[in-house]
Computed example of a mutant assay.
Amino acid sequence: MSFRTDRLGGAKVVPFMRRAPEAADRKPPLPVLIVLHQESSTPGRVGNALRALGHHLDIRRPRFGDPLPRTLEHHAGAVYFGGPMSANDCDDYIRREIDWIEVPLREQRPFLGICLGAQMLAMQLGARVAPHPQALTQIGYYPIRPTAAGRALCPDWPGKVYHWHREGFELPTGAELLAEGDDFPMQAFCAGNAFGFQFHPDVTYAMMHRWTTRGYDGLSAPGACARHHHFADRAVYDVAERAWLKNFVDGWLARRPVMAQAAE
């Protein structure tokens, strides 16, 4: 059964709060659940940011038989990464992953979906995922525009971010749009403590080399950027994207369930 946005209580996005330094001294940070979709996939720069904050990574690949936990009580949060498959595929592991997102939504734990992960989150919340009507893709760097809610949540958004996708998602009912784009209007959204990014702030320089080599056929798709533009644009835009990601990850994991704040 899909989790519906009306159970979020109509909460509006609020700015990230700074972590309390004393809280980090009381006990070690909980691990973060990492969900990957290929044997060779890595959590990239998101993993680096999490490790820098002291979190261990609990890496699981449901596609290859790894189970997902029944609760996130023993995790600081969960991140779903991208992959070449579609959220519309009928594979059992795709259905299980989408259904499992009900756990962090119900428990109000931090959840982050990147590209395919964002599309899975959107589907769990009842929104549609589909290719562009003109079969356009976004493969390379493309501009995004933060909304007022996005700027309030986390300042200093990069002007362009890295993408690699053929499908996009509608904004789920009750969710807050954080950033928009041109050919794919929905670029970032949140629903409570769950966030979805259509773009790829996780991609490292080494990952970009692998993707533009192994996924070379995608570079000829309508709307895709030529390989050399990926690296030329990275030299211009990556510093801002990397700094923004670091600030986002810290604030995202510092979020607490609404019910826990109400009890204080």
Rank of each mutant, 00 (worst) to 15 (best):
G140V: 09
M120C: 15
R95H: 14
F111T: 01
D89C: 04
L112E: 03
A122Y: 04
Y93K: 02
P143A: 11
M85E: 15
G113V: 04
D91W: 11
I114G: 06
D92N: 15
Y80E: 00
V129Q: 07
V79C: 10
G126Y: 11
C90A: 14
R96H: 15
A135L: 10
P84G: 09
P104W: 09
Y141W: 15
P104A: 10
G126C: 11
M120K: 03
I114R: 05
E97G: 00
C115D: 07
E107Q: 13
V79R: 00
R96S: 06
A76F: 10
P110V: 08
Q124S: 09
Q138K: 15
G83C: 07
R109I: 11
P84I: 07
I101H: 03
L116Y: 02
I139H: 12
A130N: 05
P104M: 02
Q134S: 08
W100A: 06
Y142R: 06
G117C: 14
T137F: 05
E97W: 00
E107C: 08
L125R: 00
F111V: 13
G140A: 13
R106D: 12
F81K: 10
E97L: 02
Y142H: 12
P131L: 11
D99T: 09
P110H: 09
G113N: 10
P104D: 13
A76Q: 07
A76L: 00
I94T: 08
A78C: 14
D89M: 13
E102F: 03
G82I: 01
R95N: 02
T137V: 09
R106T: 15
R109Y: 07
I94G: 00
D92T: 15
I144W: 08
A130S: 08
H132T: 14
C115L: 07
A135M: 15
Y141L: 08
R145I: 09
M85V: 09
I144C: 09
A78G: 02
V79Q: 00
L136R: 09
F111S: 06
G82V: 01
Q124G: 06
G117M: 07
R96Q: 15
